[in-house]
Amino acid sequence: MSIRSRHETVTFRHPFHIRGIDRELPAGCYEVVTDEETIEGLSFPVWRRIATLITVPAESLRGATERLAIGSVDLADAQAADRERCQ
């Protein structure tokens, strides 16, 4: 079984919430890493998401960051809410 990681930067224009994180996060750019694994036994490559992580400012230390597990749907919902606030 192979595992790959996709890295992307997502930008929020407003402070936001993501389900599973108990605090409001500030507007800004965030690194998101999605880990995927192959599904074996097929005649073509298929990847299944196994984890989505976002790097956020740490609550306790100024300037420090922490990587938290989130749901990909929860991230998409937060991005949609941020876009709606711009309209």
Rank of each mutant, 00 (worst) to 15 (best):
58 A>I: 07
24 E>T: 15
29 C>S: 13
32 V>M: 10
53 L>F: 01
28 G>I: 09
20 G>W: 09
40 E>S: 14
17 H>C: 09
14 H>P: 14
1 M>T: 15
2 S>Y: 04
8 E>C: 09
76 A>Q: 13
66 E>D: 10
41 G>E: 08
72 S>L: 07
16 F>Q: 04
38 T>A: 15
61 L>V: 15
51 A>P: 04
64 A>S: 07
12 F>T: 14
84 E>R: 13
4 R>K: 15
47 W>A: 00
72 S>C: 06
34 T>C: 01
12 F>S: 08
45 P>F: 03
28 G>P: 09
5 S>N: 13
45 P>E: 02
3 I>T: 13
2 S>P: 05
3 I>G: 08
49 R>Y: 01
22 D>R: 07
61 L>Q: 14
55 T>I: 00
19 R>V: 06
76 A>K: 13
9 T>V: 13
40 E>H: 05
67 R>Q: 15
3 I>Q: 06
64 A>R: 08
87 Q>G: 00
71 G>I: 07
76 A>M: 11
12 F>C: 10
45 P>L: 06
21 I>A: 06
16 F>G: 08
21 I>S: 11
84 E>L: 14
34 T>W: 00
12 F>I: 13
54 I>M: 13
30 Y>T: 02
44 F>P: 01
38 T>G: 10
77 D>E: 12
10 V>I: 15
34 T>Y: 00
65 T>S: 13
15 P>D: 10
54 I>Q: 06
55 T>F: 00
29 C>D: 13
33 V>P: 02
15 P>V: 12
56 V>C: 09
83 R>V: 15
71 G>S: 15
63 G>D: 04
60 S>L: 11
47 W>G: 00
36 E>K: 14
10 V>E: 04
14 H>F: 15
65 T>Q: 11
81 A>C: 06
55 T>W: 00
82 D>A: 03
7 H>S: 15
45 P>M: 03
84 E>G: 05
66 E>T: 15
47 W>N: 00
57 P>C: 08
29 C>H: 12
38 T>I: 03
19 R>G: 01
33 V>K: 09
45 P>Q: 04
44 F>I: 14
30 Y>E: 00
69 A>Y: 02
32 V>T: 12
62 R>G: 05
87 Q>M: 00
46 V>F: 06
16 F>Y: 10
62 R>W: 00
84 E>Y: 06
24 E>F: 07
65 T>M: 04
57 P>W: 03
34 T>A: 05
7 H>T: 12
